[in-house]
Design a protein around this nucleic acid. Structure first.
Length: 851
RNA sequence: GCGAGAGUGGCGGAACUGGCAGACGCACUGGACUUAGGAUCCAGCGGGCAACCGUGGGGGUUCGAAUCCCCCCUCUCGCACCA
């Protein structure tokens, strides 16, 4: 009786073996080439989901493949363990965030182990562990010393539901990225990291990140948003004051007919004349109200108010009215804009609405604009008019000329402006890294001395969810003497944005137990940079930009010796599934749909569109159930086979079964022939069908190697192995060729090892190898076995396939040509025609042009 | 609006530098084995009776285009008054 493929038994057996042997433990070894493979670490939400399964399956293929190729592979795993869901759980279920988090970690660790991923578990870290965040606090103190961390009062995005500040990147369409509540503006004292100091370098280095997907680099470049222009001082008429504007269009300076200030501009009230003051104040108040809606509204009506004051255009002396305008932002440029209605669409609309002057200063080739009849602004190229000494100059040239002129006159200067703003890292949350600062009534904000780190997050707190952070109510934490003068002082109760933890964890993996500082230089110098980083595109801007920033900061602090953390990046697609719903019961879980009907009421279930798997839409598959039904190998195989890694994957139950069937097929074909292949060796010469099979074996090795290495085309690699297995099944002459068969079976098993390691390891052992797959290494293809003595050539007549001929492999063009012309079917299509031309592509095809 | 990416059978997807479109898998159809088949094995499977037609649509380059160029349509993602 044939032994059936028993995934559960095989998987637990090999997982135990790997654990026992510490098979994936990594140690520095100067004599071996290192390979650092990293997948983005998960937030311990409680259970792994299919996105994790996919992400980590992709990573594991690469890690195992590189290991088989002989690299010294570092493949760590850990937990991004601080964050709001832990607090939400505490509020909802009364479980302490620490307990909730550690229990989740324990469960998810078990789940990952059941997937058979090749992690070095000795390097596991959790960011909520004081042994980790202690060093984050130290890095903060160093940044503070360098002026890279500072405190300022500012308007921040405030989520009323989460009771916390959000970074700009965490605001999506005016809502909180986690809970979708309307974001409000609130003024608070906040800690900031000076990422703007690195804006230029972060931008420049995107051109060196050749291993990153272009879309991610484009998003980062857009986010940094560098623009070159001028700052220009406009004196206020009849006052000892001036307003500084930023513009990228200094070539249109002579066309400036008014000025727009942000309502929050410090001079806004100052410039309001007595008779205009009331109206100006009302406008400011209204915009502040409107502020939170600004980002959501598609077409905010452009509104403004005249302050009553005038500025003087420094180049032509024109008196221009100063307005406040709702579309001018305080935190971009200088918060003041010179308005050129003829050449800026927003200014155009504003001017039309308030009846302001228009002066055309750029005329494009072949057209003559008239300010009175223009229907929209002209933002294209042209030559300057009404621009004094610059008339007739091409506008691109004029940008240079006018910038120079302004500098000479001392009224303006060339500047570079970035859209990127400093990173606000303060969060009014409990479950995060405490910011190591003490506020003293006498000394101000005093850093906690290094020797007193870590500032431990107290665990004896009550989480009610009301009124901000529980740390502010924890007397023992809050009340401390000032480290400088000893007078009673108060601790900072804010914690860091959790993106701070994930900005340097990849480096800490090189030395997770190191006790003398954040990073052990020798270890990070050996392992870093990460050779391949894998994660979701949703982190394209935030996490990946912060991690790049931190790398540069740590470099400048002498803790790291590199400019960029991740040499190669793979952004994998989402896992999607069809949604189902019932008219009465709403969204349905897959198991609630039986024979196309809602299992609760029997009504037909409606099939919705394919969407990202999410609990709220119930279109989810539980990895635990998947594993218990099919095994981890099947789960891995399907996530790798169904789509290339960078594309979205459509989950499909039948597809999973297909993969399960394939593993059964592999299992059977090996076990059925164990006796036959015995200790057979590959014969020196093979002929006929055996030779064809052998050629396919080596062709498959080549294909899989090339598909996996660098290209990550796992789906086609797996397809190639499936073809090989089909060929083995179809191979008639097995009894006469045990050696060839043995090679074919062993190759199949070895090529599958990175994808489905458990079954591969088991079959390898059954084939009589005691040493394990890794000892055997990655198979090499034999170039001699690939050689074909004959080739099939496609023959086209006028570009259409009309026949096929077989020629010897090294046939010259003339021989091939003659063979093609001699083909009976080809001759039929050439009847009555004259051959005009014959194109021969050696070894591939012949195209006969005839008419 | 700007930027990026993508449109190929009933479905997921192959086709790497222009060279047999649809590999591989799913679904489906037929057959074998069988008490049974939702197991397994074998075969078929873009459309059309055919000549032929087929890679979102229309042009072009080429002996030859899914692939290169131009125009258009649709979808997805990112940014969205950035001066």
């Amino acid at each position: 009786m044939e032994e059936r493929y028993d995934a559960a038994a095989i998987e637990s057996k090999w997982q135990a073996t790997w654990e026992e042997q510490r098979a994936f433990q990594a140690t520095e070894d100067a004599g071996r080439q290192k390979y650092y493979l990293l997948e983005m670490f998960p937030y311990p939400s409680g259970r792994i989901h299919m996105g994790h399964v996919r992400n980590y399956s992709i990573g594991d293929v690469v890690a195992r493949f590189k290991r088989l190729q002989g690299f010294n592979v570092l493949h760590p795993m850990g937990w991004d363990a601080f964050g709001m869901p832990a607090e939400n759980a505490a509020i909802q279920h009364g479980t302490h965030p620490a307990r909730w988090t550690w229990e989740n970690i324990a469960h998810m660790r078990d789940q990952l182990k059941k997937m058979g991923f090749s992690y070095d578990w000795d390097r596991e870290l959790a960011t909520c562990d004081a042994a980790y965040y202690k060093w984050e606090q130290l890095i903060f103190l160093k940044m503070l010393e360098q002026g890279l961390a500072y405190r300022k009062s500012s308007f921040v995005n405030w989520c009323p539901t989460c009771q916390t500040v959000l970074a700009n990147e965490q605001v999506e369409n005016g809502g909180c990225w986690r809970c979708d509540s309307q974001v409000e503006q609130k003024e608070l004292d906040q800690w900031f990291f000076k990422i703007t100091d690195y804006a230029q370098e972060l931008l420049d280095d995107t051109w060196r990140l050749t291993g990153w997907p272009e879309p991610v680099l484009v998003m980062q470049r857009n986010w940094i948003g560098r623009s070159i222009g001028c700052e220009i001082d406009f004196p206020v008429a009849d006052r000892e004051l001036s307003v500084k504007v930023f513009t990228t269009r200094q070539d249109t300076l002579y066309g400036a007919t008014f000025m727009s200030l942000a309502p929050e501009h410090p001079l806004a009230l100052e410039l309001a004349t007595a008779e205009r003051r009331q109206e100006v104040e009302a406008f400011i108040a209204r915009v502040r109200q409107q502020d939170k809606l600004r980002r959501t509204s598609d077409d905010l009506v452009k509104e403004g108010v005249f302050t009553g004051s005038f500025c003087v255009n420094p180049v032509n002396g024109r008196r221009i009215p100063v307005f406040l305008a709702n579309f001018v932002l305080m935190d971009y440029g200088t918060g003041a804009v010179m308005a050129v209605p003829t050449h800026d669409q927003r200014d155009f609309e504003f001017a039309r609405k308030y009846g302001l002057d228009l002066v055309v200063v750029i005329q494009p080739e072949g057209e003559t604009f008239d300010a009175a009849t223009m229907t929209e602004a002209w933002t294209g190229p042209g030559r300057l008019v009404h621009s004094g000494p610059f008339d007739g100059v091409d506008n691109e040239q004029a940008k240079e000329d006018i910038a120079l002129y302004l500098e000479q006159q001392g009224v303006g200067r060339r500047t570079v402006n970035f859209r990127l703003r400093d990173w606000g890292v303060s969060r009014q949350r409990y479950w995060g890294t405490p910011i190591p600062i003490i506020y003293c009534p006498a000394c101000g904000a005093v850093p906690v001395p290094e020797a007193e780190l870590p500032v431990l997050l107290p665990e004896d707190v009550e989480i009610s969810g009301e009124g901000g952070s529980p740390l502010a109510r924890h007397a023992a934490f809050l009340n401390v003497p000032c480290p400088q003068c000893g007078t009673p002082a108060r601790r900072e109760t804010d914690t860091f944005d959790t993106f701070v933890e994930s900005s340097w964890y990849f480096a800490r993996y090189a030395c997770p137990q190191y006790g003398d500082g954040p990073l052990d230089r020798a270890a990070v110098d050996y392992w870093l940079p990460v050779d391949q980083y894998i994660g979701g595109v949703e982190h394209a801007v935030m996490h990946l930009l912060y991690a790049r920033f931190f790398t540069k900061v740590l470099r400048d602090l002498g803790m790291l010796g590199l400019d960029e953390p991740f040499s190669n990046l793979l952004t994998q697609g989402m896992v999607c599934m069809e949604t189902r719903s019932c008219p009465t019961h709403g969204w349905l879980f897959p198991e609630q749909v039986v024979d196309g009907q809602c299992s609760l009421c029997g009504q037909p279930a409606q099939v919705g569109r394919n969407e990202k798997m999410s609990k709220s839409k119930k279109n989810v598959v539980d990895p635990d159930q998947l594993i218990s039904r099919f095994g981890a190998d099947t789960a891995r195989l399907f996530s790798l086979f169904a789509a290339p890694p960078e594309k979205d994957l459509e989950w499909n139950e039948q597809g999973v079964e297909g993969c399960y069937r394939f593993l059964h097929r592999v299992w059977r074909v090996v076990l059925d022939h164990l006796e036959l292949v015995g200790a057979a060796t590959i014969p020196a010469r093979t002929e006929g069908e055996a030779r064809v099979l052998r050629r396919q074996v080596h062709r498959t090795i080549k294909k899989v190697t090339e598909d996996v290495d660098g290209r990550f085309h796992f789906n086609t690699a797996i397809a190639a192995v499936m073809e090989l297995v089909n060929a083995i099944y179809g191979f008639k002459d097995k009894p006469a060729n045990p050696g060839v068969l043995r090679e074919a079976l062993e190759t199949t098993v070895r090529l599958l090892a990175p994808f489905v390691p458990h079954i591969a390891e088991e079959l390898w052992a059954r084939l009589g190898h005691a040493g394990g797959l890794e000892a055997a290494g990655w198979p090499q293809w034999d170039a001699a076995a690939l050689v074909e003595e004959e080739k099939t050539i496609v023959v086209q007549v006028n570009g259409k396939v009309r026949g096929k001929v077989t020629v010897v492999a090294d046939a010259d063009d003339e021989v091939t040509r003659q063979a093609a012309l001699a083909d009976a079917n080809v001759a039929r299509f050439l009847e009555g025609k004259t051959v005009r031309k014959v194109v021969v592509v050696p070894g591939r095809l012949v195209n006969i042009v005839a008419s």
